[in-house]
Each structure stands twice: as structure tokens, then as C-alpha cells.
């Protein structure tokens, strides 16, 4: 049960990585639960903490915290977008 995770922009810089493959830990079934799990890794992962303004996408579409995740998914975390 592995997923691909991507980090963009200021989040990638803060984490020092553009992404990873992760075997989903037990109890991590949604985008929000994944974010909470990652934020719990300690410094510098607090940038994904609940008090930070972070957006997420699942399989390349914007996703809310409650959206379910499954094996093979691509989940991305990033700051609010600033294009245009």
C-alpha cells in the first residue's frame, strides 16, 4: 500500500525534498490523516502542521482533508497558489 508524495515551492525548500514514496501507515486513510502523520515527524515537518496554510492535491486535483487515499495515489502538498 504505497503512495507517491510530492512537495512544491516553499514547502519543498523547507523540507529539503521534492517528494517520496511512502508505505501508508495503519490509520492513515485520508489526505488530512497523511498530513497529520507527516507533520508528526518532527523538525522540519511542522511546516505541514494544522496551524500552517497548506493545500493538497490527490491525483492532480485539489483535495480536501477528508478525501480518501489509496495505494498508487499521488498526493501533493503545497502553499496556497500564487500564479496569474
Amino acid at each position: 500500500m504505497t503512495i507517491k508524495i510530492l512537495y512544491f515551492a516553499a514547502l519543498r525548500d523547507a523540507l529539503g525534498t521534492a517528494g517520496e514514496s511512502l508505505a501508508l501507515p495503519p490509520g492513515v486513510n485520508s489526505v488530512g490523516e497523511l498530513r497529520r502523520f507527516l507533520a508528526g515527524r518532527g523538525e522540519p515537518w511542522q511546516v505541514l502542521g494544522a496551524d500552517r496554510n497548506v493545500r493538497a492535491a490527490r491525483n492532480q486535483r485539489m483535495a480536501d482533508a477528508g478525501e480518501s487515499i489509496a495505494a498508487g495515489d499521488e498526493v501533493a502538498f503545497f502553499p496556497p497558489v500564487t500564479g496569474g
Binding site: F8, A10, A57, A76, F78, P79, V81, G83, G84
Partner: peptide
């Protein structure tokens, strides 16, 4: 686009 397109 300003709030949904993933550009930074």
C-alpha cells in the same frame, strides 16, 4: 486561476 492553478 489565481486560487486553483498550481503555480508559485
Amino acid at each position: 486561476l489565481k486560487t486553483r492553478a498550481p503555480f508559485w
